[in-house]
Design a binder for these strands. Structure first.
Lengths: 204, 204
DNA sequence: ATTTTCAGCGTACACTTGTACGCACAAAGT
DNA sequence: ACTTTGTGCGTACAAGTGTACGCTGAAAAT
């Protein structure tokens, strides 16, 4: 019944992480968390925090990693669904919407810290988003676009999707469908716009 | 030589506002400001703060208003330049770039607080952005698009421009031109995409 | 069986924070 | 000339912060 030491340690480590995530909200960004409050909710003494993390920043980086993991799982899911013959645009958006419902706090972290105050977190978030963009760029390039155009498209699309995601976090359930529709429409604009300009260019 | 009372009051009020703005940076969002530090820099006693603002939130709203003013001046400038025969896309982007260089801190406020922790600030920022979107929607609608499509285009464009703006804040001078070019390209995608789809739709 | 390791605790300290209260003193109002 | 008004100041306090230090007790290593 008793746990081994490493099991025990991992358990309270998770308790800290979970406490931190649960305290994130629209009203509290990571920078607003306090070590004491996190440890209080995790059920340990404030000073015990240091047995697991050097400081709050290190915890923050761990959280961002966690988000990155979630994001990459989404991406894999999207790619799978796409290879089975779905539209890239629609599946991507739908899956993105899904997570904002499922675990809004993890998602919020990404939003807050992208323009947040801690440099390490900002760059970490940027890296995750960049991962997204690069992945999409590769795909677009494989369809026949040049690198520059592909990147522009990918970046624009990610910006649109994230923008929609931010709207979703604040929206009521009744507005959700509408936001989703609009995001899809916007992505279509970009895709067909790039297509049209591509055709026009190759005609010359 | 001595100032009238209202002049004096306005002067220290500005000192507070300026101190607050100057303390905003990539490393410190508004929520991270402390009343004491602001007053310290403004050169007044902490408690004197209350002679001008009910609390920090009220100061925050004042700052957002200040940003809104700046934004609207930009918009007017863009409209003017556009009526003299410039491209909407290019002039808008250029002017937007201009301000991120001129007064990055004011602009940063918009970014941080859009996904910030204080609800009042968030809604205030949203209102300013919405103003932008509506203005653009009207224009797009006047070209012959229906309301829904016009709004989708406008929102997408604003998202792109703001995204570029955020990139600019972190970018070195050497990358600036590239970011600007890309943003313009992305806006073009949206515009021609909407156009192409519009044509296709009306043919049916 | 003995020793080592180390997660977790409690105490303690030095800070910073917001703000309540009352006084001073110059400008505005009479 | 006298009174009112109100900005600004200094003091004071309670609450919250991060973290240094030394101890405990059980698991792991010997």
């Amino acid at each position: 019944m008793s746990k081994s030491r490493i099991e025990q340690k991992e358990q309270t480590r998770r308790a800290i992480i979970d406490a931190a995530i649960s305290q994130l909200s629209a009203e509290q960004s990571f920078a607003g968390l306090s070590l004491r409050e996190v440890t209080r909710q995790a059920g340990i003494a404030p000073t015990s925090f240091y047995r697991h993390f050097k400081d709050m920043e290190e915890l923050g980086l761990t959280l961002v990693d966690e988000c990155g993991l979630a994001l990459r799982q989404i991406m894999r899911k999207a790619r799978k669904q796409f290879e089975e013959g779905g539209s890239v645009i629609i599946t991507s958006v739908k899956i993105f919407m899904e997570i904002t419902e499922t675990s809004p706090n993890i998602f919020r972290l990404l939003f807050h810290e992208r323009s947040g105050t801690m440099r390490a977190l900002r760059t970490a978030v940027d890296r995750e988003i960049q991962y997204f963009i690069v992945e999409l760029t590769d795909y677009v390039q494989s369809i026949g676009y040049d690198k520059v155009s592909a990147y522009a498209q990918a970046e624009a699309m990610v910006a649109i999707v994230f923008n929609a995601g931010a709207e979703l976090l604040a929206a009521k359930a009744s507005q959700r469908k509408e936001i989703e529709k609009r995001a899809i429409m916007q992505l279509r604009y970009i895709a067909t716009g790039a297509h049209t300009l591509h055709i026009a260019k190759s005609k010359i």
